[in-house]
Design a protein around this nucleic acid. Sequence first.
DNA 1: TCAAAGTCAGAACGGCGTTCAAACTTTGTG
DNA 2: CACAAAGTTTGAACGCCGTTCTGACTTTGA
Lengths: 243, 243
Amino acid sequence: MGRRARLRAQTTAEIKAIALKHLSEGGPDAVSLRAIGREMGMSGSAIYSYFDTRDALITTLINDIYTSLLDQVETARDAVAPDDIAGRILAWGQALRVWSLANPEGFRLIYGDPVAGYHAPAGGPAPEAAKRACLGLTELAAAAWPYAKTTQASTDHQWSDFSPGLADTIREHFPGLPPAAVALALRMWGRMHGLISLEVYGHLGTQTGDPAKLYHAELLDLLRSLGLDVEHARRARTPHSSA
Amino acid sequence: MGRRARLRAQTTAEIKAIALKHLSEGGPDAVSLRAIGREMGMSGSAIYSYFDTRDALITTLINDIYTSLLDQVETARDAVAPDDIAGRILAWGQALRVWSLANPEGFRLIYGDPVAGYHAPAGGPAPEAAKRACLGLTELAAAAWPYAKTTQASTDHQWSDFSPGLADTIREHFPGLPPAAVALALRMWGRMHGLISLEVYGHLGTQTGDPAKLYHAELLDLLRSLGLDVEHARRARTPHSSA
DNA sequence: TCAAAGTCAGAACGGCGTTCAAACTTTGTG
DNA sequence: CACAAAGTTTGAACGCCGTTCTGACTTTGA
């Protein structure tokens, strides 16, 4: 990598860093090319040497943020012993919420309307991270499946219900896993996402003063509906009642 | 109401109608005062006679949309016999999803980042509708409580966990209802909101081709965890697999 | 050495919310 | 009826934005 490429990488990193700073400080509208350039001592139009358009910058931002979310969630999950299935699901769910509340603007970027007028590119803004999220959830569902199948297999899901790419990837990683387990993984995702999304967007704060307790109760109920040992999980990780 | 007041009401209604049209056609950024004025043959600044600011217009839009959502959801619920608790919960949940998919921009406005730079007023943009939603959900949870309390009462919720306003309102409408039931209502909300939110924002479409089936399975699982007769509900309302 | 490629500033275009002064219209009162 | 007060509308202006374009400057590599 020559000198020029090094400078380019450095400037690109600085643009992203300032964009992230503006994002967390002033919300999505504060991420403007002109403002970033102003702070860097550059003209706004100069940024077009590094990103074709503002949406391209947003897309790489989403990619970075989504990746950092998955790093954190996977790390939390892997800190629990592989045979403690309930503990791993709890760890995943709690880490997801903790990250989301610590990075609300990132959460909005990934899961909500990212920014005014932003249109995600084909295949989504962060296909890599999305795949990791999907596989991670499926792994949890697959581990819980022996316990959950008696209650969760009732619904009649087919492989054809899922996109071909997803179905192939999952069958490659988890051979023998039935499609109902994939549906379960998606529903687990939805269950975690629901309360977190309401809380991040401020719809829960006006109702309850302790969303953490609510979320923890929801995770325990999820474990129970999976047929996992809730009492063990409850003893192992008491809710922090923080945030 | 004199002639002037009538004209004023008419113009206000036209502004809102065009704003809604632009919202559904071109997304949130298409709701611009100048564009609305252009379409009405008015200058953009003239709209300031009717709305103090763009945010005020957005706020009344949210209010109208939220109200229409609750009209629809309550109607669906009330079409089911009061003693068919599972059916009423199903009806509420299904109506919520159907409305959300039919009005994705409205859903974004209510539950997501409404519009670039929009800041909700104190007390939320639609306190009236939000209260109806909360009471409606609590009614469902209260009806299910006799069946659900054995499994759902485990978590130790206090009245002090909730905002004083909410707690008082609920104790007035549902005397004797324990705080754990209110927590259950909020968790039911989160459970419905999760999958719907993922679907509206396009995170489910890339994974599954039949989100309706997924959502229906989730509602059945919710009913099961409430201790309600799932088989009855399943027979009564087969999923449509539409949308 | 020197052309090609990359990087940058600055002006420009059209869009936005918002403000303001000035004109015009309706209203209600003396 | 007359006329001031109140309400409505316009059009210009300010400052913001993304984006494009031109021209100057710098680095690169043959």
